[in-house]
């Protein structure tokens, strides 16, 4: 998907429109809050499914963070920075 953003408001609106993330692991924790830091009898298959999904998610996050960290600089030609006299 390609989105043309022309301003800060549009960027904010775009980010705000993203649906909340819902992962299997979150569902498991919500259903059994006592599971946090404790042992709970949940079928192994559900845990494996949750782990697999979250690993994929954290990998995607890591990849996105790496991409953001290596973004090429964008020349801001029209901005006035009076402190520097330009």
């Amino acid at each position: 998907m390609t989105v043309n953003l022309t301003g800060l408001d549009e960027l904010r609106a775009c980010l705000a429109s993203i649906l909340p993330l819902e992962l299997k692991g979150m569902e498991l924790l919500r259903g059994q809050p006592h599971r946090i830091g404790a042992i709970a009898p949940v079928p192994r298959s559900q845990v494996v499914e949750a782990v697999t999904e979250i690993v994929a998610y954290t990998e995607r996050c890591g990849a996105a963070a790496r991409s953001l960290a290596t973004l090429a600089p964008i020349p801001v030609l029209t901005a006035l920075v009076m402190e520097f006299g330009v």
């Binding site: 692991g25 924790l29 919500r30 809050p33 690993v55």
Partner: peptide
């Protein structure tokens, strides 16, 4: 604390990651 962690979406996501992918 456990219930509070699950009520807030951001904390819930962080807790889920810490619980199910501790080596993230």
């Amino acid at each position: 604390v456990a219930v509070a962690l699950t009520d807030d979406p951001m904390l819930l996501l962080a807790t889920a990651v810490a619980t199910f992918d501790p080596l993230w």
